[in-house]
Computed example of a mutant assay.
Amino acid sequence: MYRFKSSNYISVTALLIALIFVVGYLSHFISISSQEGIFQISDALLLSLACLIEGPMMLVVGPISGLLIDVSSDAVQYLPATIIIHFLMPLLIIMLKKIINWPYLLIFFSSFLTLVYSLYDLILFPILGFSEAEIKPLIISDLIINSIQMVITFALGAFLYWQLNLINNRSGHRIWNDTKYDYLKIKSKIN
């Protein structure tokens, strides 16, 4: 958390929130089916950036950008699930980075969290007044749509990570260089 003492780090966090929000808002108009299935590119961008960027930044970026996307696209009923899922996605990557050193596998495991929306719908649909007969086909179609979203999130997230990491390495870590915040780590240990 020492990184958040830097105004540059906070600015980059805000910039990434805005970038993921814009990508998510624009991708809201790309529909998977005639129902409410949305092809959400922002999840792939979130996962690829979570693999690239060290530290807690994406734990803040994910939930806030997801919140903004849901509010702007009139999906307020999904806010609790979105905030939890978009917090858990980068958290899972951060936790598994210590065990697994292959980012594509981290993106793969984190993309499974998109299926939590189907579990959330099991809770949400009865609250919205759907009968049990109506819920079953809705959950099945929702599970199919979220499975497609999971595959797209993994494939696009892996591709974006590959490209961003390639550019970052070729440019001498101009996209992201976590060592420029090391002075704050040393400073926080002294205090």
Rank of each mutant, 00 (worst) to 15 (best):
R3S: 08
S7L: 11
N8A: 11
Y9N: 05
Y9G: 01
I10S: 00
I10V: 09
I10M: 03
S11K: 07
V12T: 07
T13N: 03
L16Y: 02
L16T: 00
A18K: 03
L19H: 04
Y25A: 06
L26C: 11
S27F: 14
H28N: 15
H28Q: 15
F29N: 11
S31A: 15
S31R: 14
I32H: 05
S33P: 12
S34A: 14
Q35W: 15
E36M: 15
E36H: 15
I38H: 12
F39S: 12
I41H: 00
S42V: 02
D43C: 10
D43L: 14
L47F: 08
A50R: 04
A50E: 01
L52D: 04
E54I: 09
G55N: 05
L59M: 09
I64G: 01
G66E: 02
D70P: 02
V71S: 08
S73L: 07
V76L: 12
V76T: 13
L79M: 11
H86Q: 08
L88Q: 05
P90W: 01
I94D: 00
I107P: 00
F108D: 03
F112D: 02
L115K: 05
L115Q: 11
D121K: 07
L124H: 01
I127M: 11
L128Q: 14
S131Q: 07
E132V: 12
I135L: 06
D142K: 08
S147A: 10
I148Q: 05
T153K: 03
A155E: 04
A158W: 01
F159S: 09
F159A: 12
Y161D: 00
W162L: 13
Q163S: 14
L164E: 06
L166T: 13
S171F: 05
I175V: 09
K180Q: 15
Y181V: 03
Y181N: 03
Y183P: 06
K187D: 09
S188I: 13
